[in-house]
Write a protein that binds this DNA or RNA. Structure first.
Length: 231
DNA sequence: GACCAGGCACATC
DNA sequence: GATGTGCATGGT
């Protein structure tokens, strides 16, 4: 039994790895590369990571456009701005009072030592340590922290969201009540460590979840239909 | 008019 | 540690 279970374990993880990569390939050829957070605007990604909490991206964009129009999408500007004015500008993204405070707190954290407003300094801090630090900031939970690590700092960290849990539990690959960190470890343990892969895979999952996983009736449109089916 | 969206903090048991 | 609740706008 021990020897078999070890073999089975290895085989299972090889199968899981192949299946996950198949799923990614299938989504990629169906949706095309999602091109999330194109390079060059890490600070915008950081603010976007807060604004998008439990919110449709279209609404986040309105808020980001408002901030850009006022040329406020810079750490030094957001540090100065009056809280009420910030609330007004990000209003379209919902939860605007909470999010305005969270942005203020995050900007304070970003501008203070040891980061001193520098993404370079932030990147030099070991990923686990940086994650711990981010999690101490008000309004930064695991998903927001991981989004910042992956999309702004380009660290190989897999971002898990509610779609990820819903979809992969329905496919029967993980338990429904799996914890955030365990689900993250499931992907990181079964996929090659790649920033580009993690970046686009998460984006593909969101595309799939938002388009086809709302109603059972839409399952016939699911691009995964032939390789993985919901139970 | 109900339901949902790229979560998180806080209270309570 | 698990479970419930408030937070809020805009699209379908």
């Amino acid at each position: 039994m021990p020897k078999n279970s070890l073999l089975r374990g290895k085989k299972q993880s090889a199968d899981t790895r192949r299946l996950l990569l198949d799923i990614y390939q299938r989504l990629l050829s169906y949706f095309g590369h999602r091109n999330w957070w194109p390079a060059g605007a890490p600070f915008e990604m950081v603010i976007g990571a807060i604004l998008t909490q439990n919110t449709n991206w279209a609404n986040v964009e309105r808020a980001l456009i408002n901030l850009k129009k006022e040329k406020l999408l810079k750490p030094e500007k957001l540090a100065e701005i009056n809280l009420h004015k910030l609330e007004k500008l990000i209003r379209p993204s919902g939860y605007f009072r909470q999010k305005a405070k969270r942005i203020k707190d995050l900007v304070k954290f970003f501008n203070a030592p040891p980061i001193d407003g520098s993404f370079e300094k932030m990147r030099r801090i070991p990923t686990d340590k940086m994650r711990e630090m981010l999690l101490t900031v008000n309004g930064i939970g695991p998903e927001t922290a991981d989004s910042i690590l992956l999309y702004a700092l380009e660290k190989p960290v897999f971002v898990v969201d509610s779609y990820t849990r819903r979809i992969f539990a329905k496919l029967g690959l993980v338990p429904e009540d799996i914890k955030y960190d365990d689900l993250k470890a499931f992907f990181e343990g079964n996929l090659p460590r790649s920033v580009d892969l993690y970046n686009d895979f998460h984006a593909q999952i969101v595309a799939l979840g938002a388009l086809y996983c709302k109603k059972r009736a839409q399952c016939n449109l699911c691009p995964l239909g032939e390789i993985a089916r919901c139970k």
